[in-house]
Write a protein that binds this DNA or RNA. Sequence first.
DNA 1: CCTACCGATCGGTAGG
DNA 2: CCTACCGATCGGTAGG
Lengths: 196, 196
Amino acid sequence: MSKIRTGQGSSKKDVIIKKAASLFRQKGYAASSMRELADLVGVEAPSLYNHIGSKSELLQAICYTVANEFNGHLGKVKNSKESCSKRIEQVIRFHIEMMLESFDEVYVANHEWKQLGDPFLSNFLQQRRSYENVMAAIIEEGIASKEFRKLHSHVAVLTILSAVRGLESWLRHRKNISKEDLENNMVEHLLNGLNK
Amino acid sequence: MSKIRTGQGSSKKDVIIKKAASLFRQKGYAASSMRELADLVGVEAPSLYNHIGSKSELLQAICYTVANEFNGHLGKVKNSKESCSKRIEQVIRFHIEMMLESFDEVYVANHEWKQLGDPFLSNFLQQRRSYENVMAAIIEEGIASKEFRKLHSHVAVLTILSAVRGLESWLRHRKNISKEDLENNMVEHLLNGLNK
DNA sequence: CCTACCGATCGGTAGG
DNA sequence: CCTACCGATCGGTAGG
C-alpha cells in the first residue's frame, strides 16, 4: 500500500532514503553523519551525492511521504457515511498500522520534523494543523449527534494522536502481545473514553 | 517544589542548565552548539567550562532531575490508601502539571534521552521501565478489584503516558483553554476509558 | 563509483 | 572571565 516499502523495484535513491530513515530513527537527524549513511548503503560518502542532492533532502522525503500517506487516508475517511465513532476508530487503526508497517519513517517524521528548513518546516506544520482540524470536526459532529460525550474536541484529538504515537516506545522493547490485541486494547481505551 | 525552577538563589551553573534546557528543546541536543548556549548565557563559549564539565553533562543533569521528580511523586502515590482510580488520576495530573511547570526540561528528557552516553543511557531506561511497571501494577490492582475494565495493563500505561506527553505539542501553539480544563478533559477521557 | 580535498564548525584546552 | 587556538569531524565538491 505504501511507497515506503522497499521492494525489488526500488531505485538506489529509494534504498538510500530507507537506510536514512533507519539511521535517523536510531541516532537522530543531526547526530547522523553522511559517512555513517554511506557505510550502511555500502559506498563512500561522496557517492551518495550521485543519487541525492543533500542530507536535508532525505529528511524532507521521509517527512513528506509519511504526511501524504496520512492525509490520503484521512481524506477518504472524512466524508464517509459511517458513524463518527466508526470513522475515528478507522483513523486510530490506520495510525497503529502505519506505525507497525513503517516504523522508522513515522518515527522520524514525528521526532525530526523540527530539523526541516523553511519552507518545508512551515508547510509540514500547516499540513499537520489541517489534519488535526479535520479530526476535531469529526469529533464535534459526534458530540453534536450525542454519539460522544461532551469533551473539548481539540484536546480529544491530542489525546488520541499522542496515545497512538506512544506505540513507538512499545516497538522499541517489543512485549509479548499481538498487533490485534494492541489495536483492540487501545481502541477500546480511547473510544470508550470518548463514547457516551 | 522543584529544583528545576530558577530563582534568585540559583548558581551560574543552574542558569546554564536552565538555558541549555531551553536551547535543547528548541533545536535538539545534537543541533545545539556550545557557542549558541554561551550567547544565551552572555559569555564566551570557553567560559562555560568554568562551571560545567561538558556538553553531555548538561543533558544528564536535565534528564536526571526530571526523572527524579517523577520517581519521587510516584513513590509517594504508589502505596497510598486511595482507590486505584484516584491514584492513577493523581499520576495523570502530576504529569500534566510537570509539563506545564517545567516544559523545557520535561520535553528534553522525553526527546533527547537517546543522546545520553552509557552508563547514563541504560540507567535512565532502567528507571523508566521501573516507573512503567509501578503504574501497571496499580492498574492491575484496579482490574482485580473490578474497579477498571479488563485491559492489558501495559498497553493502558502506554496509552496514558503517551497521551499526557502530547501536551508538548499543545504547549507549542497555545490554544485558548485553561490548565484546569485541559487537565479535566484529559483525565475524563483517559479515566473513563479505563473505568468499568 | 572512487580518491583527494575544501571551508566551516564542532567540543574543548591552555594560559593568563 | 577572556583571547587564541587545537584536532576532529562535518556536509559537500572537483575531477576522473
